[in-house]
Design a binder for these strands. Structure first.
Length: 488
RNA sequence: GGCGCUAUCGUCUAGGGGUUAGGACGGAAGAUUCUCAAUCUUCAAACCCGGGUUCGAUUCCCGGUAGCGCUACCA
């Protein structure tokens, strides 16, 4: 294989904010394609917009990328390659394919009802001698591409997703290559780098589809063969609008998913299903299976909605239900050891003191009851808090019962549990026998105990819970509950 | 306004000239059960509109409509 035919893709975020979920998906698709074809992934920070770039944003993007745990091979910063961009722009100018525009950038917005702006005639037609003279005199100018509009020319390219694309050159404005401060524009910098870094496939958001005609023009002017293009349908909010932090809040940031307790594999799986499918009804797809099924041709063309609720009542509602469901599937699939480790980190970060062995016992009891890792804090709190938060004593009263029955049950439980064998089977035997002795249904027996030890009616199975909690805590909490029913 | 792209259940999607239009999430009901989950079963739920082409269009073509994108010396 010759060097020229090697597959090389790039992910080129501009550091003007956190890692956006749409950017993350673009990165994932690039990764998938590279992995699938044995290609190389280039990470390029497109940081030519000096005013908007922040170091904080660079950190946040790397944070998100590290969490996804997908690798890349080469790394560049556009801001360190400005000489290359200018050199290539200059070469295009020398060929007569670009010209200097001395008219200062448009201040307000133009009136679009009169059609699009295409170029300043007097600037496009300025003689080279005059142009050189004004430039030498120090007059600022932007360098504009001279879009071929003399004869009816159509610019064409084939998109791996959207198919044959064509646009008349007469509909393309003479876009800028260099700003008047000498900085390259996005179009110039991007194409120059794509050429220099020998990018073979550009996989990016569909918002660049119409820009691609300009890019084809630049590639040709620079004497380079345009790479292959694949544009991805956009990810949009439930209202159909492009996802934006200002409008939709933290749901558009990758780190929000991380912090809420998504597993990166689940998040990746979810994102892949937005605009792509393996076409065989599979949805729970570990990464290696996605790699095997992935192809650019299977990508959809319509935008996909991330279905989160705008004013989210619960943290869970803030996310697309399918993402949450997939996450629960990945949690179920995780070995208990591994899940336990991850949950422990969250519990400890929340300020609770808990040892590994105990977390390892708790994990199987809650793994089917949590959808996000952080749910451990609400689903298993009673295992690691010393004092149960106050609960409504009325919850202690079982179905078809009253306070007197609750008291009777709890006192009996107290008596039985003082000497019961604290294992699943031992507890079941003692408690069922106690229920029978009292002449109450098992449910009527278990409910007051459950509430007494967990503070709520919905909790993991009782015998396992008591076994993990231990005799001491169990009895103390039952005593407390007995006092509560008495005081009513 | 110009140009480009898109259109199947609420959402993500499969399919494709003749189908009971398939799956998943979510919703509803039921089974199971010590509660809650998990799991299983069942149900409701869609081809944007109008013309053509055709024996037959949801599928192909054209038009409309709607949505999105680009239209910066932002990326």
């Amino acid at each position: 294989m010759t060097a020229g035919s090697a597959i090389r893709v790039r992910f080129a975020p501009s550091p003007t904010g956190f890692l956006h979920v749409g950017s993350a998906r673009t990165f994932i698709f690039n990764w998938l394609f590279a992995r699938r074809t044995g290609g190389t992934i280039v990470l390029r920070l497109d940081d030519t917009d000096v005013e908007r770039n922040t170091g904080e944003s660079v950190e946040s993007i790397f944070d998100g990328l590290r969490w996804l745990a997908l690798d890349w091979q080469e790394e560049y910063k556009q801001s360190e390659r400005l000489a290359l961009h200018r050199q290539m722009a200059q070469a295009i100018f020398e060929k007569g394919l670009a010209y200097r525009d001395f008219i200062p950038g448009a201040a307000g917005e133009r009136d679009r009802s009169e059609g699009p702006w295409l170029f300043h005639r007097e600037m496009r037609e300025l003689s080279r001698a005059e142009s050189d003279r004004r430039a030498a005199a120090g007059e600022p100018f932007a360098l504009r591409f001279r879009v071929p509009r003399e004869r009816e020319e159509t610019i064409r390219f084939t998109d791996a997703v959207y198919g044959e694309q064509a646009k008349s050159a007469s509909d393309i404005e003479d876009f800028a290559l260099l700003r008047s401060d000498g900085m390259p524009t996005y179009h110039m910098a991007s194409c120059a780098d794509d050429i220099d870094l020998r990018i073979s496939h550009i996989i990016r958001g569909q918002d660049h589809l119409s820009n691609t005609f300009k890019h084809v023009l630049i590639f040709r002017a620079a004497g380079a063969e345009p790479p292959r293009f694949a544009h991805l349908p956009l990810l949009v909010a439930p209202d159909g609008a492009k996802l934006s932090k200002r409008k939709h809040g933290p749901v558009v940031s990758v780190t929000t998913y991380r912090d809420a307790g998504f597993l990166p594999q689940a998040f990746i799986n979810f994102l892949c299903l937005l605009g792509w499918s393996p076409k065989d009804d599979r949805e729970f797809l570990p990464l290696d299976e996605i790699v095997r099924a992935f192809s650019l041709e299977n990508i959809n063309r319509a935008n996909a909605v991330i279905n989160f609720k705008e004013p989210a009542a619960t943290p869970e509602e803030a996310f697309d239900p399918k993402a949450v469901w997939l996450n629960s599937q990945y949690i179920h699939a995780l070995p208990v050891e591994e899940l336990s480790k991850q949950l422990l980190a969250i519990v400890r970060a929340a300020g609770h003191d808990l040892d590994e062995a105990r977390m390892r016992q708790i994990t199987p009891l809650i793994r089917e009851r949590i959808k996000l890792l952080r749910d451990v804090l609400t689903a298993a709190d009673f295992f690691f808090v010393k004092e149960l938060p106050a609960y409504d004593p009325a919850l202690l009263i079982p179905q078809k019962g009253n306070a007197a029955l609750a008291r009777k049950v709890l006192e009996k439980a107290r008596e039985v549990l003082a000497k019961a064998d604290f294992t699943h089977d031992g507890l079941e035997k003692s408690l069922r026998a106690a229920a029978q002795e009292l002449g109450v249904k098992a449910g009527q027996m278990f409910t007051p105990i459950r509430v007494a030890v967990t503070g709520r009616t919905a909790a993991p199975p009782l015998f396992e819970t008591l076994a993990v909690l231990g005799r001491e805590t169990t009895l103390a909490r039952i005593d407390e509950a007995v006092r509560e029913v008495h005081s009513r």
